[in-house]
């Protein structure tokens, strides 16, 4: 059986909120290392990969591998019934028909309990090759969100160019063009504002802004976001969570003109 207790319901609320517009029905794969989710969007352009390590829960118990097939719309409805600060416990039997969610308020004695019916989801699992990326940019997640939002007003695509000069986000649209240039930057007092660029070779890739704007819904999960790029491979956008847990998005590049 599975029993996983989260100190704050907020974490799961934010994760589900960040991915629910990209993917609808997903398997939450539970085993003794934690709860993982991998799902591709319908157009096969973006992939969500979530890992909530067992250390992110206290306690965490999962004796056998269990796949919980959940509709994220249904999960959202139920998670809305939880206060952000509620303690959340996920429970399921070994061959479950439902997943049980218990929300406990630390301040009052209120305990609420919900069951969500599970679905049989036959999902293709993708092998993601270990990649030594040519460029890794770590930057404030709010800054990345702003760049994506600003440029999406002008164009459908953004080119991300990384060189010794820094990183440049460029777009061209019907009304004109825009570009934002960032350099490495260290703020001793506010390290969450740091921009770190780790480059082994110059990179230039083009991506759909619609998807990037969507990924940025995860900005509330982490102050910083990591962008990993290599020429001609999908972009990795990573929001690191506590205890080595993470929410990652992969986005296939655009090619040619």
């Amino acid at each position: 059986m599975l029993e996983a207790r989260l100190e704050q319901a907020n974490l799961l609320k934010k994760v589900v909120d960040a991915i629910k517009d990209l993917v609808q029905d997903c398997n939450f794969d539970c085993n003794d290392s934690g709860i993982a989710l991998q799902a591709m969007d319908n157009s096969h352009v973006a992939l969500v990969s979530m890992m909530l390590k067992s250390e992110s829960f206290s306690p965490f118990r999962c004796d056998r591998n269990i796949a919980l097939g959940i509709n994220l719309g249904s999960l959202t409805k139920v998670l809305r019934c939880a206060q952000n600060e509620d303690i959340l416990t996920l429970k399921a039997e070994d061959a479950p028909d439902v997943v049980n969610l218990v929300f406990e308020s630390a301040e009052t004695d209120r305990i609420s309990e919900y069951d969500i019916k599970l679905m049989d989801i036959d999902q293709e699992h993708l092998g993601i090759p270990e990649t030594e990326y040519a460029a890794t940019i770590t930057m404030p997640s709010a800054e990345f969100q702003r760049i994506c939002r600003d440029l999406s007003a002008l164009s459908e695509s953004v080119s991300i160019e990384c060189s010794k000069e820094g990183v440049k986000f460029n777009c061209q649209g019907d009304i004109g063009s825009g570009s934002i240039h960032l350099r490495s930057h260290t703020n001793v007092d506010k390290p969450e504002l740091n921009v770190e660029i780790d480059l082994t070779e110059p990179v230039s890739l083009t991506f759909s802004l619609k998807y990037l704007v969507n990924f940025c819904k995860a900005s509330g999960l982490s102050n910083q976001v990591k962008l990993c790029l290599s020429n001609e491979v999908p972009l990795l956008v990573e929001y690191a969570l506590s205890n080595n847990s993470y929410l990652r998005f992969y986005l296939a590049p655009k090619i040619g003109d």
Partner: peptide
Amino acid sequence: TPLQNDLGEFFTAI
């Protein structure tokens, strides 16, 4: 307009 690649071209099903 640049063409959108499919993720399946990079990641294989397992």
